[in-house]
Amino acid sequence: MHIADGLLEPEVVAAGFALSAALAVYSLKNSQDRENFSALVPRISMVTAALFISSLLNIPVGPTTVHFSFVGLAGILLGPLSVLAVIVSLIMQLLLFNHGGFSTLGMNAANFALAALTAHYLFQLRRSQLFRQSWHKYLAFLAVAAATLVKIAGASLALYYSGFPAGVGLSLTAVHLPIILAEGLLTAAVVIILMKGKRVFIYEEIQDLV
């Protein structure tokens, strides 16, 4: 899901960088733990490590290959701070694995960050009256599925405005179905494990303690 160099029009490239910068500012402003930021660095770097390594795990689907990204899990665990994790992991993937491209870094970061934020806000719904407490696992799955779809929509829009056919979105969605399923199930399992213990790892619950 990393768009390579040379595929996007200059305007789309510029829009990508602007959007990702805006999202980075938004994430820093919206995390209520700015004073407590250094305490969260170990947590952020561990989630970044998971994001970074996940792109090596590929599944061949049809004519192409797709890989895990775990942006949904990052959103659930880090809240708005997941934007930072996403940006750092994308830069490291670009430098160390040649994934994506320098010119498309902004657009890729914006797509991934939006996906992580989607998962974060969707997972917050488990606290509303509409959902039972025990439904958090289903919500985790849904949050990951929605995050992946947001990522695909972002990439498809960027490609569409750079002259690619609109059908790209559909084909991208089709090849990503196995990833949505696998990543959703894995994230739900991790959420179940993390919510069983006494210590809290989910972003909003950390906030409650602060």
Binding site: P42, R43, M46, V47, A49, A50, I53, S54, S55, L56, L57, N58, T64, T65, V66, H67, F68, F97, N98, H99, L186, V190, I193, L194, R199, F201
Partner: peptide, 28 residues
């Protein structure tokens, strides 16, 4: 917390190794 995440990474690596035999890590 780091331990669990590391486990996730390890488990995924294991899945990868299992599915790709002893082939080098895949990329795209």
């Amino acid at each position: 917390f780091p331990g669990l995440l590391l486990l996730l990474i390890l488990a995924l690596t294991a899945i990868l190794v299992l599915f790709s035999g002893s082939a080098p890590v895949q990329a795209h």
